[in-house]
C-alpha cells in the first residue's frame, strides 16, 4: 500500500505547490514510484510548476466522475520515469471531490505507486479537507509570519480531528513542519520570526527550512521543480528535506547570515 502525504498549510501562497513538486520529484529521484495530485480544483497550477500543462487531457475530477480512467489522466514526467502528475480541473467546482470518490482513486493509485503526494489548496474547506482526509503523513508548510503560523496551527487541529485516521481511531497522522521563505537576514534584523519561535509555537518535528530564494521563481518560470536546480540553496534544502523524510539525519542548513567569503561565493552561487 502506498504512503499518502498531504502538503498543507491553511494559508495560501506559502509554498505548498512549490513543495509538492520538489518533494515528489525528490522521491522519484530516489527511485520511488511517485504520483503528485493537484487538489486545487478550479485553480490548478501544479501542472504549470511541473511543466506539463500542455499535456493535460483528463483531470482528477474526470476520473472521480468516471469520464476517464486513472491511466488516461496521469501525465508521465519527461525527466523522471518514476514520476506522474494527476492534474486538477480548471473549471469544475470543488463539490466534485467526495470522500468516496477520492478514496477510490487513491486506492487505485495505491496499487501502482509507493508515494502519493497531495497538493492541498488553501483554506479549510472541501478541497483542503479532502486533500488531507486519507493522509498518513502531513507536511505543514509555514512561513515565518503571523497569519501563516496561526493558520498552520488551525490546520494541525483539523488534521487530528477530521482525517480518516482520526475518525477510525487509527494511529494519528505523522505531522512535520516545513518552514519556507526563510530569510536569516530579516530574522537577524528582528523583522521576521525566528525558526525557534515558529517551532516553539507549533511544536512539530522540523523536516526542513527552505530559504527565500530567487531560484524558486526561476524554476516556476521554466516549469522545473526547484529541487532540480542543484546549485540553488532552495534546491539543496529540498533535497535535504526529502532525505530527512526518508529517515536520514541531516543538520539544517541555510539558517544563518554568515558572510560568503571567496570560497563560499565560488561554491555556493
Amino acid at each position: 500500500m502506498a504512503r499518502v502525504i498531504v502538503v498543507t498549510s491553511g494559508k495560501g501562497g506559502v509554498g505548498k505547490t512549490t513543495t509538492s513538486a520538489a518533494f515528489a520529484m525528490g522521491l522519484a529521484e530516489r527511485g520511488f514510484r511517485t504520483v503528485v495530485i493537484d487538489f486545487d480544483v478550479g485553480l490548478r497550477n501544479l501542472d504549470l510548476i511541473m511543466g506539463c500543462e500542455r499535456r493535460v487531457v483528463y483531470d482528477f475530477v474526470n476520473v472521480i466522475q468516471g469520464d476517464a480512467n486513472v491511466g488516461q489522466a496521469l501525465i508521465k514526467d519527461k525527466r523522471n520515469p518514476n514520476l506522474f502528475v494527476l492534474p486538477a480541473s480548471q473549471t469544475r467546482d470543488k463539490d466534485a471531490l467526495t470522500v468516496e470518490g477520492v478514496g477510490k482513486v487513491l486506492e487505485e493509485l495505491g496499487r501502482e505507486f509507493e508515494f502519493i503526494v497531495c497538493d492541498s489548496p488553501a483554506g479549510i474547506e472541501r478541497g483542503a479537507t479532502m486533500a488531507m482526509y486519507y493522509a498518513d503523513d502531513a507536511i505543514v508548510v509555514t512561513n515565518p509570519e503571523v497569519s501563516s503560523v496561526r493558520d498552520s496551527d488551525r490546520m494541525i487541529g483539523i488534521l487530528s480531528s477530521k482525517s480518516r485516521r482520526a475518525e477510525q481511531n487509527m494511529e494519528g497522522i505523522r505531522e512535520f513542519l516545513l518552514v519556507t521563505r526563510y530569510s536569516p537576514e530579516r530574522v537577524k534584523r528582528g523583522e521576521m520570526l525566528a525558526l525557534e519561535d515558529v517551532q516553539e509555537i507549533l511544536s512539530l518535528d522540523l523536516i526542513g527550512v527552505i530559504p527565500e530564494s530567487t531560484a524558486v521563481l526561476n524554476a516556476s518560470n521554466a516549469g522545473v521543480p526547484v529541487i532540480l536546480d542543484r546549485e540553488s540553496s532552495a534546491g539543496q534544502a529540498y533535497s535535504d528535506m526529502v532525505a530527512r523524510y526518508l529517515g536520514e539525519d541531516l543538520p539544517h542548513r541555510f539558517l544563518s547570515t554568515e558572510k560568503k567569503g571567496l570560497f563560499g561565493r565560488l561554491f555556493r552561487g
Binding site: 503571523v146 496561526r150 530574522v187 534584523r189 528582528g190 523583522e191 521576521m192 520570526l193 519561535d197 509555537i201
Partner: peptide, 18 residues
Amino acid sequence: SNSAALAKERLQILVAHD
C-alpha cells in the same frame, strides 16, 4: 525594528485562544 518579538507574543496568545 524588533517587530518579530511582538509577532511572537501576539501569536502565543492567539494560538492559545484558538
